[in-house]
């Protein structure tokens, strides 16, 4: 099994008086096809971990290998390239552009990857069909329900066929029924072989994952779980 995410002694300290140790030395390996939930109360450092994993932030110590690439000392453009091709982001507040149709929103997922517009559109349609929105291609986000919007966001994350799906509280803005359907979608993606890492504060949501990382005061511990 190949490792998608390898964290070795990764730390993140924010400057200040006194300096804040948001994440203490962390060692985590996530293999391809893993479904990992990161659980912790607010202020525990789970957002910091997510930003490090998503290459939106750099660790102050340790090494982070994403899909076999050491992210230490690579240029900003190369980091951005990894974000564009290897990581798919799903946010709590969806971040869809209101003036664009669903298919245009999904195609944005590949905007910073070389390729033709027609190919992007084709893959966007494919991704939307995959999340069950093949019938709302030309709808605008404002006309969609919360669950549909999050599906569009998931489709956008899938458009560039990433190695890792990073979800930040994906169900935080959704009701329980919609939450369940989004989690079903994550299950499906996981079963098709996608590596998923999901941040949540909801234990019930976290329970759907295979592995659960608890984070508390910047310390990450793995919860022993019964493999289903």
């Amino acid at each position: 099994m190949t490792a998608v995410v390898e964290l070795e002694g990764v730390e993140r300290t924010f400057d200040g008086t006194p300096p804040v140790e948001a994440l203490k030395a962390t060692n985590v390996v996530v293999n391809q096809g893993d479904y990992v939930a990161i659980v912790g109360p607010s202020g525990s450092g789970k957002s910091t971990l997510l930003h490090l994993l998503g290459l939106l932030d750099s660790p102050t110590a340790g090494t982070y290998r994403l899909d076999g690439v050491d992210t230490q000392g690579i240029s900003e453009a190369e980091k951005a390239g990894l974000r564009a091709t290897r990581i798919g982001f799903v946010f709590q507040s969806f971040h869809l552009l209101a003036t664009r149709t669903t298919v245009e929103n999904v195609a944005l997922g590949e905007l910073y990857v070389a390729g033709s517009k027609a190919d992007r559109k084709a893959r966007a349609v494919e991704a939307l069909t995959r999340v069950g929105l093949g019938h709302r291609l030309d709808a605008y986000p404002t006309t969609l329900s919360g669950g549909e919007r999050q599906r569009v966001a998931v489709a956008r994350a899938l458009a560039a066929s990433p190695a890792l799906l990073l979800a930040d509280e994906p169900t935080g803005n959704l009701d329980s029924v919609t939450t369940a359907s989004i989690l079903d979608l994550f299950d499906e993606l996981h079963q098709s072989g996608l590596t998923v890492m999901m941040i949540t504060h909801d234990r019930n949501v976290a329970a759907r994952a295979d592995r659960q990382l608890n984070i508390n005061d910047g310390v990450v511990t793995e919860e022993a779980m019964e493999r289903a």
């Binding site: 951005a80 974000r83 946010f91 971040h95 552009l97 905007l111 910073y112 990857v113």
Partner: peptide
């Protein structure tokens, strides 16, 4: 701002 953040997450550099 939100769109800019999204674009950065999608792979835009500051230059882009």
């Amino acid at each position: 701002t939100g769109e800019i953040g999204l674009r950065q997450a999608l792979g835009a550099t500051r230059r882009h």
